[in-house]
Design a protein around this nucleic acid. Structure first.
Lengths: 213, 213
DNA sequence: AATCTTTTGAGAGTTACTGTCATTTGACTT
DNA sequence: AAGTCAAATGACAGTAACTCTCAAAAGATT
């Protein structure tokens, strides 16, 4: 059974980062990270998130519990750590300056989501399913969204000339993230089989038309 | 020093509920609840949320730790438990049926927020300040918002005739909560001195005009 | 090969819970 | 007023997610 056949994980750099060959140390770190995440995902699937103590994950990944906490400060991070923010940032910066902010956000969001799907759909599925079902993960994910929101605010601040802490800017950004999140949750509830990009598009449409029903 | 002079807390029913005189047992329960919350708020203010173990809150409230957990399933609940949902629900149901959903939400949100401010501004201040500063509370509050969102979806489902799990409905509701939350956070950052109602109005305006900047 | 630095594992300690059980205390009956 | 019942409380034991410290192991460097 091949170990990592044709499967990119979040532990592999998202973008083609043909960086300098890493030393043995760095390579081992990446392996350990992967081992922990894989063991965790497998156990979560088998027995559920709450029913899986970190100690057992450590055991399954063949590392000490201390090591698990060194790689992932909290159990939630094992599931939620991702590299989506830079992707979104790049996608939005790539939009032409003459585009309206809303349109730039829309295209940036759609583009980066497509990239994430292409990169590792299986992982997105697992992650979102867990996010839907485990309250602790939902809560933590929301925390993560406010951090992403700060980033997006900064990018849009440049684009619009507004200050990064501008209230209207923040409203826009948080509404977009809320809509995107809701679209993701709907997708999960529909069995993750539908067209996620279309769902997100629909969600952003609702925002763009001023929430009219 | 008077003990509860002119100060309504979340432990006192929000609305004028001149219900039947409560038995001693019920009265004591309310007292205990109040004692725990007051002790907690005081200690949080003095030494911070994270630096205050539940045991110390129990001690300060003169109850056993078990009792604290009986009243509040988690430490976060001591801060976050509120009775806002019924207020919002009532406010929205009170809007005339011919009003558009967006307008009904807007007025309902504003009305209920005003009611909350009138009821106990001091508590709203403490709560929102803690929500802003303590990550664990931010996360947990987000969880609470998704529950409130479910309720609001149900109410709007009735009003619009759409199913309660309608995607567009859910987008609308989650966007509104996101905007309201962001307005609250802005208010906190501005020292909680500005006009909160105006801020929320501004936030909802941004949504209503389709996020144009 | 020797040394230096980073990573790891072991172990002890804290804290937020969870579950159980005996005791207490208000409520209700007679 | 005494007795009974149900609910509330407190004491205690246990689990699990971390946090900190320190010595051993392993890669990097000379």
């Amino acid at each position: 059974m091949p170990e990592n056949a044709g499967m990119a994980s979040a532990d592999t750099p998202s973008v083609a980062q043909a960086g300098p060959r890493l030393g043995l140390r760095e390579r081992k770190k990446i392996q350990t990270r992967q081992a922990i995440r894989r063991a965790a995902y497998r156990l979560f699937e088998q027995q559920g998130y709450d029913a899986t103590p970190v100690d057992r994950i450590a055991e399954a990944a063949d590392v000490s519990p201390s090591t698990v906490f060194r790689y992932f400060p909290t159990k939630e991070d094992i599931v939620l750590t991702d590299e989506y923010d830079p992707v979104l940032e790049a996608a939005i910066r790539a939009r032409p300056a003459e585009e309206t902010p809303v349109e730039a956000i829309r295209q940036g969001v759609v583009d980066s989501m497509q990239r994430i799907i292409d990169h590792d759909l299986a992982e997105l599925r697992q992650r979102t399913r867990l996010m839907r079902e485990v309250p602790a993960l939902r809560a933590r994910a929301a925390e993560g969204m406010t951090e992403s929101a700060r980033m997006l605010c900064a990018v849009l601040a440049e684009r619009t000339g507004r200050p990064a802490d501008d209230i209207e800017l923040r409203i826009v950004v948080s509404a977009v993230f809320a809509a995107m999140n809701e679209a993701l949750m709907c997708w999960v509830e529909q069995g993750q089989t539908g067209d996620l990009i279309a769902l997100i598009g629909q969600a952003l449409d609702v925002l763009a038309r001023g929430l009219t029903l």
